[in-house]
């Protein structure tokens, strides 16, 4: 079943809060092989002008998976087939880097749904804010659900 284009404009309820920890940032930095000290050493982060260690630029994808993809997959009416889904693109626009101590929450918006050559294209915008309403990053992603051929 192709995804319903009427889903354009749909937004999911605000996610629960994810508290960003120093250990998780360090683990993420190690997993991408990034040795920058501002990701692991609070003193290096302070010297660079940050109140705590910051997270690598693609760190917000963790929240995208944990909350946005989860919301889509759990939405039975949408009918997204996770097994046929691939990530088409991803982009981030930063107000500032994510940092340890951030209490982040997000809203996932479906901006458009296209059906082309048997494949579905889902364009998403995810607004990531702190729980006291500071915008931190806006992520955009395209998910592609390959048709069954």
């Amino acid at each position: 079943m192709p995804l319903d284009p009427a889903y354009a404009g749909h937004a999911y309820p605000r996610s629960e809060v994810y508290e960003v920890g120093r250990a998780k940032i360090r683990e993420f930095a190690e997993a991408i092989g990034d040795a920058n000290p501002v990701y692991r050493d609070p003193e290096a982060a302070a010297a660079a002008g940050y109140p705590d260690v910051i997270a690598p630029p693609t760190f917000p994808v963790l929240l995208f998976g944990k909350f946005s993809i989860a919301a889509l997959v759990e939405d039975e009416a949408l009918g997204l087939d996770y097994g046929r889904m691939v990530h088409g693109d991803m982009s981030f626009a930063y107000q500032r880097p994510v940092r340890a101590g951030d209490r982040l929450t997000l809203v996932t918006h479906i901006e458009s749904v296209m059906n082309r050559a048997g494949n579905d294209f889902l364009n998403l915008r995810v607004d990531v804010d702190t729980d006291d309403d500071e915008r931190v990053v806006v992520a955009r992603a395209q998910l592609v659900v390959r048709g069954e051929q």
């Binding site: 501002v38 990701y39 690598p56 693609t58 693109d89 982009s91 626009a93 930063y94 395209q142």
Partner: peptide, 17 residues
Amino acid sequence: TDWLGDPGALLEYGARF
């Protein structure tokens, strides 16, 4: 970011797979 030194100087970043 290695080139920038300060990852906070990255304002936008995107790619297609």
